[in-house]
Design a protein around this nucleic acid. Structure first.
Length: 426
DNA sequence: TCTGGGGTCCTAGGACCC
DNA sequence: TCTGGGGTCCTAGGACCC
């Protein structure tokens, strides 16, 4: 049996922990730039405000309903997440936990007798609630895909299930599948959902009746086959080993304001490069490739939102490196080539690729590996940035005008990660 | 009109996730 | 006026090899 533990309205719950008066009140959390609604509590769902809705479109309703609004505070959420995951690891053993996202983890329950799982999971849920203030929902079933089905129903019917649903018998599984729409299955996105609807397949129970090769043909090859097998109760997606080394590292942002000047674009790209390379160094790796993209402001359209035209460029490094200065150079060259005077830009990004551990650097005839001095310099900058958390030292090219910086008008404090922002209790 | 039969490696792009 | 930011995996197809 597998279980999935999922924090309810996670970002909102984190904000509520530090604002107890919001406990039964509606709360939303906004994306960077205060652009979209990326988390909402049940009270907000009842108002009919959709996930991912543009904030400005819902602002009036939100104000009228007295909804508490927060800009996203990722330091806070990351720290709360760590606490929840720690409890899971302590309770079921670190080898039986797969941290799947900031607010979700899969558990292996094979070492717990079937007839004790319900009691175990209920007490786990209580413990997390008491120790962190975060409420979780838990679904358990013979496969990961089915545990997601269970979890969704547990969350949907909180009162009846007490946020815990275990599907172990074939009849319970069938009943749950009949109540689940295909688009709510883990692994079925919008494209496949449309396709399935066109074939008249609308529930998970209907999909489960299809033959495996059919899924292989129509739902993305081996991925679709695996999904269907899991729906049929055959576990074939194992608990993943923790993956420490990323294969791709990206830093991309919408700008706070439309950008038209090359200088602002350069500043943004240099800053994003520095950020991405910091992430790279944190995993003790080096990157052999860097690409830069810019997205223009969309021409005015009525109706649907569209991205403007985008252009990107890729540069292969002569030698893989984690030196900010060596990567900023090609990044700036690329952005200068991509920039067209007179055009307006709303987003840019930097993606590092061809990532390998720093111990495996391939040198070549024409490139020298980054010297010791350079590495030392990077370590010093990282240490200062991590301890001060304020980017005191920056590369000059990252500039100071920051015309492109994002807006965050509703941010809560770093309650758990900065001494000077601790919650005060009188 | 016909135009071998394998391989490998790489990239671009599509699909998905939270 | 204002619409997020990361990631993963897989496949198809091109370039190249013998």
């Amino acid at each position: 049996m597998f279980a999935i533990v999922d924090c309810n309205s996670f970002y909102c719950s984190c904000e509520r922990v530090f604002e107890p008066k919001l406990h039964n009140a509606p709360v939303v959390v906004l994306s960077n730039n205060d652009g979209c609604i990326i988390a909402r509590t049940d009270e907000v769902k009842e108002l009919g405000i959709a996930m991912g809705a543009p904030f400005f479109q819902e602002k009036k309703r939100i104000e009228e309903a007295g909804v508490a609004v927060f800009s996203s505070n990722y330091n806070l959420y990351g720290d709360m997440s760590r606490r929840v995951m720690q409890i899971l690891q302590d309770e079921v053993g670190v080898e039986h936990v797969e941290v799947y996202s900031v607010d979700e983890a899969f558990l292996h329950l094979h070492h717990i007798p079937l007839n004790m799982q319900e009691e175990f999971l209920a007490s786990l849920r209580n413990k997390i609630g008491m120790w962190t203030g975060i409420q979780v929902s838990i679904g358990a079933a013979p496969t990961k895909v089915l545990s997601k089905v269970a979890n969704r129903l547990a969350k949907k019917h909180k009162k009846a299930t007490k946020c815990l649903l275990i599907l172990s018998s074939p009849s319970a599984i069938q009943e749950a599948l009949a109540k689940t729409a295909v688009e709510d299955i883990w692994g079925i996105g919008r494209r496949y959902a449309d396709k399935l609807h066109n074939w008249g397949i609308t529930t998970a129970a209907q999909l489960e009746e299809m033959p495996i090769p059919w899924a292989g043909k129509h739902l993305g090859g081996v991925v679709g086959e695996r999904l269907l097998r899991e729906l049929k109760g055959e576990a074939c997606i194992p608990l993943q080993e923790p993956r420490t080394d990323k294969q791709m590292i990206a830093t991309t942002r919408m700008f706070g304001h439309t950008v038209t000047e090359l200088k602002d674009l350069e500043e943004a790209v240099a800053t994003y490069t520095a950020r991405a390379v910091e992430k790279l160094r944190r995993q003790h790796a080096v990157a052999g490739g860097i690409s830069v993209f810019v997205i223009e402001k969309a021409p005015p359209t009525e109706g649907k939102f569209r991205h403007g035209p985008s252009r990107s460029s890729f540069h292969l490094m002569p030698v893989a490196t984690a030196a900010t200065n060596l990567l900023i150079k090609p990044a700036l060259n690329m952005v200068r080539k991509l920039y067209k005077p007179g055009h307006s830009y709303k987003k840019a990004g930097v993606v590092l690729s061809h990532i390998v551990p720093e111990t495996h650097v391939q040198t070549n005839l024409f490139g020298q590996p980054a010297g010791k001095e350079n590495k030392k310099l990077m370590e010093i900058i990282d240490n200062i940035n991590f301890s001060q958390r304020n980017d005191i030292l920056q590369f000059a090219t990252t500039g100071t005008s920051r015309n492109w910086k994002m807006q965050r008008g509703y941010k809560s404090r770093h309650y758990t990660t900065r001494w000077d922002e601790l919650k005060e209790v009188r």
